[in-house]
Design a protein around this nucleic acid. Structure first.
Lengths: 227, 227
DNA sequence: ACAATAGTGTCTGTTAGACAGTATTCA
DNA sequence: TGAATACTGTCTAACAGACACTATTGT
């Protein structure tokens, strides 16, 4: 018995945090195939290149590099969406990656490459109506996982520059979790977890300068939940 | 530009809990292709059948039904392992499913179908030396996710019959988490979460009969961690 | 009566959350 | 000096964890 092979792609849900709201990078689809999807908004992604991609992560990175000339601060496999109806060309599996980056860098990128950063809050209510394929669903699933993981890890630090104030991290946490946390308590908890490293120099913002911190590792997990 | 399509399979890490230790169902691989893998121990799985599988979950269920005539108590997508070296036949993506079931039913199945339930503890140290493909790695990853999820969900209840005593659930929790939890405190926490429904009748075991419980939903998540 | 397991009440130490207040910068 | 933000100390309520105790079955 012989079966057609599915198509296999990677798609990257590239997110950032602007004005306290999660945003996702989208661009207008230019490919002619399938004709129904041309001109709609899509995630960055593409087919696995079996002759050059060692694995799925490599495919995600190659795609980002080739299409955007970009490497995000954080990138991880999130889930796989695979069925017979997501692409009119036939059975298709998309390995979906979640990427996080700080807004300044992404805004630059977006300006240079003709992308848009779209508000992904409110269950996708502000996404364009004409989204390609099932990308609206992919975004919804990835964002939900992001919010969950933010609760017990340093994930959201990737929405900040490499060095940041605790108040910045605090703000990012609150925004992603949608909850207010007392600043003093946040400070105590996060420092207790020993996942941040103190900078030598002070970091200057609008008021009194504060201690700068950076992540000890790309991601660390807490024993307790933090917000 | 044209690229070969990867092969796409589903593999099911079918687990249970025996004598307080996680076990996984394995069978001897009979397929002739690739020759190097024949006669080794493997997970239940197979290629996506693009003409009959609506999606990846359907493919996992079909595989379990066709090869084992079995439907597990719990089944969910866990992660995808995709690279150019896991299968000598070429670029391959496996969508890995995690399945849980209670030991009695699984032991019956295993006896009838010539499978083995193998101890999956100690980082796979007790798995057979001759595991097919990268299935040892797939098991390690799936088991790690299982242990993590057990901490904040009712997942482990699927290692028990549909109706169970709190002491059974307590034992399962301890085994999977590898930690001792005070029975009284476990009782308080789990009942507080309101994820269990009381049975009408009492459930009889060795000593004093106790209140039987069953899951309100296939899986529920806790606000706090439980063990 | 005793073994075995189910289930309750309560004490104590730790943590979460709220909040008041001090410290250090720029304008 | 005042606005802005960083940071600390402390109080209280809630919760985790430990433990002693009672309850209900079979043998």
């Amino acid at each position: 018995m012989h079966y057609e092979k599915p198509n296999v792609t990677v798609d990257v849900v590239l997110t950032t945090l602007i004005a306290g709201r999660l945003h996702v990078a989208l661009k207008i689809r230019e490919a002619d195939e399938p004709p129904t999807e041309k001109g709609k908004w899509e995630l960055t992604g593409g087919f696995i290149h079996t002759n050059e991609d060692g694995d799925d992560m490599a495919a995600a990175k190659r795609t980002l590099r080739a299409k955007l000339d970009f490497e995000p601060s954080y990138l991880e496999q999130s889930f796989t969406e695979a069925n017979d109806h997501r692409d009119s060309r036939g059975w298709s599996a998309s390995i979906v990656y979640l990427a996080l980056h700080e807004p300044a860098g992404l805004q630059e990128l977006v300006a240079a490459r003709g992308l848009q950063l779209v508000d992904a809050e409110d269950d996708g209510a502000h996404l364009p109506a004409n989204m390609a394929f099932d990308h609206k669903l992919l975004i919804a699933k990835a964002v939900e996982k992001l919010r969950a993981k933010a609760r017990y890890s340093t994930l959201v630090a990737h929405f900040l520059p490499p060095q940041f104030l605790l108040s910045d991290l605090h703000e990012a946490f609150q925004a992603v979790r949608g909850k207010v946390v007392n600043p003093a308590n946040f400070r105590k908890k996060i420092l207790d977890e020993k996942v941040l490293v103190e900078m030598e120099e002070r970091l200057f913002s609008k008021g009194r300068p504060g201690t700068g911190y950076y992540l000890a590792q790309p991601i660390a997990y807490f024993d307790r939940t933090i917000a």
